[in-house]
Design a binder for these strands. Sequence first.
DNA 1: AGATTGGATCTTGGATCCAATTAAAGGAAG
DNA 2: CTTCCTTTAATTGGATCCAAGATCCAATCT
Lengths: 231, 231
Amino acid sequence: MPPTRSTQILDLLGVRPTSVQHARTVIEATLAEAILDGSLASGTALRQAELGEVFGVSRMPVREALLSLQARGLVDHVPHKGAVVVGVDPEDVVNTYRIRLLLEPEALAGSIPHLGLADIDDARRILEAMEDDPDLVDLGRLNSEFHLALYKRHPNAKLLKLIGRELDDEDRYLRFHLAELGSDQLAQTEHRQLVDLAARGATGDAVAVLRQHIGAAADTIEAYFRGRSQN
Amino acid sequence: MPPTRSTQILDLLGVRPTSVQHARTVIEATLAEAILDGSLASGTALRQAELGEVFGVSRMPVREALLSLQARGLVDHVPHKGAVVVGVDPEDVVNTYRIRLLLEPEALAGSIPHLGLADIDDARRILEAMEDDPDLVDLGRLNSEFHLALYKRHPNAKLLKLIGRELDDEDRYLRFHLAELGSDQLAQTEHRQLVDLAARGATGDAVAVLRQHIGAAADTIEAYFRGRSQN
DNA sequence: AGATTGGATCTTGGATCCAATTAAAGGAAG
DNA sequence: CTTCCTTTAATTGGATCCAAGATCCAATCT
């Protein structure tokens, strides 16, 4: 497809298509972010009128945003009652780790052969950001980004999207309890091993470390719950 | 939370809360069904006003239903332009098989130990229905149901939901091309083997058959596309 | 003739208004 | 004083109305 006149001009101006952001889009994104990073606690009731005032719009875009959030499983919508931020089911957290254990080894193995130097650098940069940044809210997101950075050259785009969703779910929980568990649970040592092995193209070893990494996290969380439910 | 009077009465009547079906809910379900089973072809433009007339309702619940369908990835929503039924990307079909190959062996292995006689009977009944029913539209759905019937005792509920979604995606494609490929591609022989091995609790053998079953399907579809894109 | 620009028309996005449902508050009867 | 019923306030669901952006077509200029 030859570039059209308009795209040439956009290039000259250095402007991206900048697809117009509609109200419901930014509202959905904002609320999703707030729920994911924990600033909107589980069980919080989301009143349409109230949110409309906050965002300076009517109830209409708000309810559509809430509807989308329901489809994403972030809020629970009870007819005529309202939307509440859905809680994190401990069982689901462990389930998510088990699913990651199925998906991510394949993602890593299929991506490493196609990783370039720039990709490795990206991953390393994320690791450094994690060490510098003490903010727990950022840590979860960075952790997700790091993992995805290593997988991103896998040819199966759908697999990557799937993993992204699982990481989001995990992330949400992580931010809640990272403080209690201690942020060393993120196992930066293993992260460094992963990126080094990936850089050397040592696929088998990298996958082994990843399996151990995710498995250990799953066990830690599970033990944490087990201890908790006995109180 | 103690049961209220009304729920007690509902229980006595044997009536489920029968959650009031809102317009947008039934519209979304109806459209989703139509898209999944192919009666709404890819690329079809979905006009809000038109659909509103069809369902005897205003545009409002229609647009909310369309929004939900977009979140589910069934329609593509272009601002101020409208919603169109999203096409099936050949690449995604193969990708979906690869993902199934990661998820379903674990699902089967973890479910077999907990399967009861009734579960096996359920699966067998679905197989019989597949043989009796020549309707291609039903075949895809029944195929999904059969697989899920074998996995349903797996303790990881989230994994099952995930597989259900993948099967839906696959299903949608299957209905389109089952006629061309021949319905014997569903490999009823392997299906029978699967349920027999599951009944005997032969987990290892069952998983092996399943791997072969899904892998063969993936290869068939991939070859079909390869042959097609060369024309 | 071809391209460009201006406007008419169509479709969606958002605001406002009304109806339906639910939860709660208050009062009457036991 | 408790329980049940009625009434009332609050909130969401749906309809209608207006604004913004997009597409299409014709008129105009090169």
